[in-house]
Amino acid sequence: MALFAGAEHFEAIGHRLRELREHAGLEGKDLAVRLGWSASKVSRLELARQGISPADIDAWITTTGGSSGDRAALLGLLDQAREEQHTLRRRARHGQAAVQAGYNTLIERAAVIRFLETAVIPGPLQTPEYARAILTAAQRQLRLSVEDIEGAVTTRMERQRYLYSNRRFNLLIAEPVLRWGLVPPDVMRGQVDRLHTVIGLKNVRLGILPFGTPLEIVPLHSFVMYDDLVCVETFGREHRYTGPEVETYTNVLNHLWGSAATGLDARRLLVKVADELAPPAM
């Protein structure tokens, strides 16, 4: 019985690695010497007791004389294993605060963070009130057994300190994000005010895709890029991509930014939204 998400795929990877080693006529210690690894690492990889990277697979294939087909098969198994590990409900089984801490780490390790948001305000820009409403909705939607909303809000708010660091943020949101009825109007007004404050930050680029603006690219879904790592969240899981996929998402952003309202135009749009959210005069 698999003890963790993706275990069966990792076990299949380990089995095939051992076959390749044995076919090459190498003992584990001999392969370790050729790879410059410890013998224990070779054993742990074959027994699926240690995570494996694409670079590890490349090195193993090269050293054991494996084929391009072997490489493709192993990388495919690795992709499947990682996919299973990113099921949203599984990731949040210990609470949402841990998930938020993971995103904080991704930002901490990145130099450039890029968002396209068609659903919610990007996490680094959210007010506590807005974040609380969104995380409460996630708690309900994913039917999580651990309820740690306040801890998750606090952890998400910690992310905002990176806005004042040497990291660069490119944050592109579609106008519907400002108009979805996900939070009460007074919470959304506070959130819109918060967006005003980041427009002047030298390392933050905020853009809004207004209603009615001609677009060359269809903004099918939200995604975040941490340097060359792409994260796409669906209803049930998060997908992560590297390699050739990165260019696809980079091109999407480049095209959509050409249609975005920025600077003074973005401020005017935010003022308009805030005015429409204001309670009627008595």
Results as ranks from 00 to 15, higher is better:
142 L>W: 15
166 N>F: 00
174 A>W: 03
229 L>E: 14
120 V>A: 12
161 R>H: 15
157 M>V: 01
226 Y>M: 04
172 L>G: 01
113 I>G: 11
230 V>C: 10
223 F>R: 02
234 T>A: 13
116 L>K: 12
159 R>D: 09
203 N>M: 03
193 D>C: 00
130 Y>E: 10
164 Y>N: 02
175 E>Q: 12
238 E>K: 07
141 Q>C: 00
204 V>D: 06
177 V>C: 04
101 A>C: 01
104 N>F: 02
109 R>Y: 02
109 R>H: 14
109 R>N: 14
185 P>H: 03
200 G>M: 01
235 F>E: 13
190 G>N: 12
222 S>N: 04
102 G>I: 05
162 Y>H: 12
178 L>E: 03
242 T>M: 06
141 Q>Y: 11
228 D>L: 04
184 P>Y: 02
146 V>N: 09
187 V>I: 15
192 V>R: 02
134 I>C: 05
203 N>A: 09
135 L>Y: 03
165 S>I: 04
155 T>K: 15
146 V>K: 13
125 L>G: 08
179 R>T: 04
222 S>D: 05
207 G>W: 01
214 P>S: 07
139 Q>R: 11
226 Y>I: 04
120 V>D: 06
104 N>L: 14
240 R>L: 14
208 I>E: 10
112 V>C: 10
224 V>P: 01
195 L>V: 07
227 D>E: 06
154 T>L: 13
136 T>C: 08
155 T>S: 13
150 E>W: 06
120 V>S: 06
108 E>R: 15
214 P>I: 13
106 L>H: 12
226 Y>W: 05
144 L>R: 07
154 T>Q: 14
140 R>F: 05
171 L>H: 00
115 F>L: 08
208 I>W: 00
207 G>K: 04
227 D>G: 08
230 V>G: 13
131 A>C: 14
198 V>M: 05
174 A>R: 01
191 Q>N: 04
116 L>Q: 09
181 G>S: 08
151 G>D: 13
144 L>E: 14
136 T>D: 09
244 P>V: 08
219 P>K: 07
239 H>A: 10
152 A>V: 09
125 L>F: 10
120 V>M: 09
219 P>H: 08
202 K>I: 01
226 Y>A: 10
167 R>K: 15
168 R>A: 10
235 F>A: 14
216 E>L: 12
132 R>N: 05
105 T>I: 08
145 S>Q: 15
158 E>Y: 00
112 V>E: 15
221 H>Q: 15
